[in-house]
Design a protein around this nucleic acid. Structure first.
Lengths: 205, 205
DNA sequence: AATAATTTTGACTATATGGTCAAGTATTGT
DNA sequence: ACAATACTTGACCATATAGTCAAAATTATT
């Protein structure tokens, strides 16, 4: 049985190889999806042998699951930060900024997640229906409170979040399409003011 | 060699089986991606045997390619319709309407395309860099002309298109996430006014 | 009805892939 | 230095899957 399951990771080698494998797996999974990726591809990318990979992780799915769990945390983090006490439009703009930075700096993570959700979220459906749903419900109350206090326009909070997620993640997930249209120019620094303007304008009371 | 390659499809059976296979393949490919789908899955869904599938299509990729080509056409169609002569904001709203209808009525096609682009568009990259890029360039000129004439606000046309694509397709591609957050309520009829308001507000001069 | 053309399939091959294992090698603790 | 523990891998197995093919079944043509 893989070390990962039987005991706590403790040795130097365990920690090194673990991150090495996850790094390689993220490369591969984000490019080819779960089914399109093979343990051999991950092994090659990591410079290890296949049995060695399976010494650290029980099976292919365990690697995938580990990556998705980490991803979900990072994904939810900026949403947590939205604070009812702060100025609403600045707060939303900050959220857009953070999501756009994630798309720019962690495109592999974004694609991993997109692949997963696109195929019906077989591994993270409970998280979507649990943690994500709850968090969105909570933050939606903040949006509604802001609207009722006249601080922003009346908008459907759910669709507001969907629109922010869609527009920001698009630059990571549909990267190849974006760059095709833009002749390979970097999209991020022009996307940022565009999106901030779009959402600010809509939210102005 | 498969009938499809050697001669024109002409007989009744050829036409029937062809559409039957493509219909089944769309089901399968949109759910599992190219690599995650097997010819056997398609055969089962179509109620045919695997060799029978391969009598009509040379190989798995040929089925996929056929579907993608059809998809691309439908995908581009509404964009073609944008007409410089009409009232700008109504024209954009009509485009949003059509894209939202596509997401609602043809989610499998949307997911097929998303899967393809997400994995680097291995089969449609030339189309993205050709037909799509050209069409977007052309329609961007219309947007710019409208802005210069003071009929709409100054916006980056490329990012406008990206935002429309992202927000509308999101409801098909991230369907499972949207429904998780919304407790399975239908998103489309609330998304429609939200998006129209968002884009109209941003575009008002 | 007889013949020709088309369609269907069971049985098959070759290869890819997830995963195992026993035997080796390296590292660590004493 | 030595034993104990941790790590690595070549060779292997079982299964899944793309694709083939010759023969059988069906349909169209005369």
């Amino acid at each position: 049985m893989a070390r990962s399951q039987s005991t706590k990771k403790s040795t130097r080698i365990q920690r090194q190889k673990n991150t090495l494998i996850l790094e390689a797996a993220l490369d591969v999974f984000s490019d080819f999806g779960f089914r399109g990726s093979t343990i051999d591809m991950i092994a090659n990318r990591a410079g290890l042998s296949k049995p060695n990979i399976l010494y650290y992780f029980d099976n292919k799915e365990a690697i995938h699951t580990t990556l998705l769990a980490k991803m979900l945390e990072t994904w939810l983090e900026p949403l947590h930060e939205i604070n009812a006490e702060n100025e609403p439009i600045a707060e939303i703009c900050k959220y857009i900024d953070q999501k756009l930075n994630m798309a720019r700096d962690f495109p592999r993570e974004s694609k991993l997640f997109a692949n997963e959700v696109l195929q019906g979220a077989p591994h993270v459906l409970p998280d979507l229906q649990g943690a994500l749903k709850e968090l969105v419900a909570q933050k939606s109350m903040i949006i509604n409170a802001w609207a009722n206090a006249g601080k922003i326009a009346q908008v459907d909070p759910h669709h507001l979040f969907f629109a922010i997620w869609a527009t920001t993640q698009h630059y990571a997930d549909f990267d190849i399409q974006v760059r095709s249209v833009l002749n390979n120019r970097d999209p991020f620094e022009t996307a940022r003011p565009f999106l901030k303007t779009m959402f600010s304008t809509m939210l102005k009371p």
